[in-house]
Each structure stands twice: as C-alpha cells, then as structure tokens.
Amino acid sequence: MAVPGVAAFVDEMAGWTIVFVLGQAVDWRRGALVVDTVGVATRSDIMSRVRSKNTGPEMLVRRLVFAAGYRYRLHGKKLPGKPDLVFAGRRKVIFVHGCFWHLHVGCVLGARIPKSRVEFWTLKLEGNRRRDEANRVALAGLGWKVLTLWECELADRDALCAKVYAFLDDPG
C-alpha cells in the first residue's frame, strides 16, 4: 500500500533501507533508527560544500608562503597523497590538514567523533589518519621532506610563519 509523502529505497545486498518521509531521510541501519536533522536537499547542499582543495586553511598558508617570496606548485598529482604545496627544487612538501577530517591527536576538533554512526566515522577518520601516515612514509622514502600544518595551528600567525619559514629555509 502506498502512503502519500513516503518513498522507500531498499538494497537487500547492502543491507540498508532508506525511507523518505515528507522529504526527511529516515535511515534504518543495524536496528537503530537515525533521523537526519535537516532535509535531503539541505544535507546534499551542506556536503557539496566540503572541499578537498582550495580550503580556507590551505588558502591562508598559500598566501603566507607566496607573500614571503616562496614559489610552489599545487596538489602534486605525481606524489603520494597529492600534497597541497610542492616545492620541487627544495624537495619539500606541505600538507594543510583539517583537524576533524585527519584526526588530529590532542586537538579539540580532532578528538570529536560525531554521535551518530560512530562506527562509520571512527573507521573513516582512522582510515584517513593511516593513509596520511602511509603517504608521509612514502614521500620520505622518495627523499622528500614533509611538513604537516593543522587547522588549529593557523590561529597563531607568528608561530605559523616561524614554523613554515624554518622548514623551507632548512637546507637539510
């Protein structure tokens, strides 16, 4: 029997059912009912704005480095992890990581796991952290020096400048 305003999508192989009730997604997984607090269109709009390149923190670091006279390439596609800034002549790279997405240990933002779908988010974020470490090791194996800047470190501009300049000016 069809109910007005209700549509259901079931994937038996994946073991999930999503029911749309008047535009709200109600997700039934592992016997727990999870209701999103925003509509499907709003959630889609929010997630479409999450970027992997040209983020606010990355743009801040790029402006700082460029203003200091350093020149770089962006998002080195041939290097492990596609570093945000690549200084090929110096064989150095800089990653600008968001504390939440890359699980920054010891940071308030990095220590926060969403309350819904805890298992999914734990696996996702821990996987990101492991991938970051593997990329760091691979780059070191290729003879590259790596600096990782965290979103929470960008607030102190003087400390950030000192850290970046020391990394780029170090001949070793």
Score class of each variant (00 low, 15 high):
Arg91Pro: 01
Met47Phe: 08
His97Trp: 05
Lys77Ile: 13
Trp144Asn: 05
Leu103Ala: 10
Ala2Pro: 15
Gly5Met: 05
Trp28Tyr: 12
Arg117Thr: 10
Asp84Arg: 04
Arg136Thr: 13
Arg30Met: 14
Ile18Trp: 09
Ala67Phe: 07
Arg62Gln: 04
Cys99Glu: 00
Ala41Asp: 10
Glu126Cys: 11
Leu147Cys: 00
Thr17His: 11
Gly89Ile: 02
Gly23Ser: 01
Met59Gly: 05
Arg51His: 08
Leu103Cys: 08
Glu133Phe: 11
Arg51Asn: 09
Lys82Thr: 13
Gly76Phe: 02
Leu103Gln: 14
Ser116Phe: 09
Val26Thr: 07
Ala134Tyr: 09
Leu168Trp: 03
Ser116Glu: 15
Val3Pro: 00
Leu79Val: 04
Gly110Val: 01
Glu151Gly: 03
Phe9Tyr: 14
Phe20Ser: 12
Gly15Val: 10
Arg73Asn: 07
Met1Val: 14
Thr122Arg: 13
Ala111Ile: 02
Phe120His: 09
Val10Cys: 11
Gly141Ala: 08
Phe120Thr: 03
Val50Lys: 01
Leu154Gln: 00
Cys152Trp: 07
Gly110Gln: 03
Ala68Ser: 10
Ala14Leu: 14
Glu58Phe: 02
Asp27Asn: 15
Leu123Ile: 10
Lys163Cys: 01
Gly39Leu: 04
Ala41Ser: 09
Gly76Arg: 06
Ala88Lys: 10
Phe20Arg: 11
Thr17Lys: 13
Ser48Tyr: 03
Val34Asn: 13
Pro57Arg: 04
Arg71Cys: 02
Cys99Gly: 07
Thr148Asp: 05
Arg63His: 13
Arg30Asn: 15
Lys82His: 14
Ala14Gly: 14
Leu22Asn: 14
Trp150His: 01
Phe95Met: 02
His75Trp: 05
Trp150Cys: 00
Cys161Gly: 10
Leu139Phe: 04
Gly141Arg: 09
Arg130His: 11
Ala32Asn: 15
Val35Gln: 12
Ala67Asn: 13
Lys92Ser: 00
Leu154Asp: 06
Lys82Phe: 09
Leu64Tyr: 02
Arg49Glu: 08
Phe87Glu: 01
Gly143Ala: 04
Thr122Met: 11
Gly76Ala: 02
Val105Asn: 13
Val38His: 14
Val96Lys: 06
Trp28Glu: 12
Arg29Ala: 10
Glu58Lys: 04
